[in-house]
Simulated scan of single mutants.
Amino acid sequence: MTLENQQFIKSAEAAALEVLLHNSKGPFLDLPRTAGWGYPEPYTRDLLISVLGIAVTNNAELLQSVRHVLLMLAKNQSKRGHIPSLVHDKEDRGASDTTPLFLIAVGIFRKVAKEPHFLENSIKKALLWMEYQSPSDHYMVSQLPTSDWRDEQWVLGHGLFVNTLVHTYLKLFGNTESAEKLRQEMERPTFTSNRISNQSQEGLTIDHQPYYALWSYKVYSSERFDLLGNSIAILSGIASPSRAKAIIDWVETSCSSMRKTKELSIGLSPNFFPFIYPGDSDWFPRYTDFNQPGNYHNGGIWPFISGFYIAALVASKNYGLAEKKLLTLTKLIKAGRNKELEFGFNEWYKAQDGKPMGQDWQTWSASNYLYAARCVAEKRTPFFDSIRK
């Protein structure tokens, strides 16, 4: 990487830290806000995902804000162990990813703060809650549609993203036996309605593709590609090194083809593709307003997910491509809806033209940029390296 590009990335890292410090206290009980001006609320999943980037900064003020978030979530945890969707509102419930993200965030915070028993009782309750999320009483957990970070898109039954989170926290807390059994269940093939299988439970692998299915449940599944779930599958060691390489090769080849068809304009992957179009079997009328092809959950480019993908490239020792993607991401996050910002760190960008479409100074956009930059600089993936081993 040239000295000029190194300096460019350093300036973006400094800007990302400024975003996180700016957002570290909001109008709700001094909890962090989710974006600099929009989203003043403390959304649980956003703030918990942001713990990764904050942890590698070792910034005392930001770590104190993480402690405040985790303590408030523990206070508002349900009696059965579920974590709310808004940090300050114990009645805002129903998310499938907040509880596993809480477990991951506490696991990481314990390591950074050197407090191995931090929130022990809340962790026990959360682990028990997650045990009851498996309808088959095995290891893969299930969810209702729009209950994970895709609040405008259907993921039904055994969702890839949530199960990669479960695998991650199991490894973080040393439950390697359960983590391995979960991985084995995920490695089973999905069922199809026109194929009879002798296996007892469906999995998340697809016979004719290297990547994992977006979701599966009994004879139904989605073979559309989930960048976030597959990236964490690589990071956490669910995917073998050979499968990880095959997934990455497939992503890069597919995105090259999408650029030729003008579905994609820049060198970063959409969060989800092939896009869902009107008339497709998985198109819902509400998508007309919220999820047009190449937009939002239906193929928008999300910097926080690009950060996970860059980390996955580092985990696969694909350092050159990781460096290239980090530079492309740095150029993208300069763009904001507010033209006066040096770095926009927008929430998401339209795939077809790269325009910023969400809120500027999004907390997890800034945080995961810092995490990705650290991974590239040090050729390692903090907190995930030990999980893969």
Rank of each mutant, 00 (worst) to 15 (best):
T2Q: 07
F8C: 09
A14F: 05
A15K: 03
E18R: 13
L21A: 04
S24V: 08
P27F: 05
L29S: 12
D30G: 14
G38S: 13
P42H: 05
Y43D: 05
Y43P: 08
Y43C: 08
T44C: 03
R45P: 09
L52I: 09
L52P: 07
V56A: 05
V56M: 04
N59W: 05
L62G: 02
L62V: 05
Q64F: 08
S65M: 07
H68M: 04
K75L: 14
Q77D: 06
K79F: 13
H82R: 10
H88W: 08
S96R: 01
P100H: 00
L101W: 04
F109N: 00
V112W: 04
P116H: 06
P116E: 05
H117F: 13
H117N: 12
K124C: 08
A126R: 01
E131V: 11
E131M: 10
E131C: 12
E131A: 06
S134Y: 01
S134Q: 06
D137L: 14
M140D: 02
L144M: 12
T146Y: 11
T146R: 12
R150P: 06
R150V: 10
W154L: 15
L156F: 14
G159Y: 00
V162A: 06
F173P: 08
F173D: 00
S178H: 03
A179K: 00
E187T: 09
E187Y: 10
R188L: 15
T190E: 03
F191Q: 00
I196K: 11
E202T: 15
G203C: 07
L204R: 02
L204K: 02
A213M: 07
S216V: 09
K218R: 11
K218N: 13
S221A: 11
L228Y: 09
G229A: 05
N230V: 07
I232Y: 02
L235R: 01
L235C: 06
S236N: 07
I238H: 04
A239Q: 02
A239H: 03
R243Q: 10
I248N: 00
S254Y: 04
T261Y: 05
K262N: 11
S265Q: 04
S265C: 13
I266L: 15
I266N: 06
G267F: 09
L268E: 02
L268R: 02
L268I: 12
P270T: 05
P270Y: 02
N271C: 15
P274Y: 02
I276F: 08
P278G: 09
S281W: 06
D282H: 08
W283S: 07
P285I: 01
T288N: 08
D289F: 15
N291F: 07
P293V: 06
G294Q: 01
H297S: 12
N298I: 14
G299Y: 02
G300W: 00
W302G: 06
S306N: 13
G307T: 07
A312T: 09
L313I: 12
N318I: 12
Y319C: 12
A322I: 10
E323A: 13
E323L: 12
K331V: 13
L332C: 07
K334H: 13
K339V: 13
E342P: 11
F345E: 00
F345N: 03
N346M: 09
K350Y: 15
A351H: 01
A351T: 06
Q352I: 15
Q352L: 12
Q352E: 15
Q352W: 15
Q352S: 15
D353T: 10
G358E: 00
N368D: 09
A373Y: 07
V376A: 04
V376Q: 00
E378Y: 11
E378N: 14
K379P: 10
T381A: 11
I387Y: 00
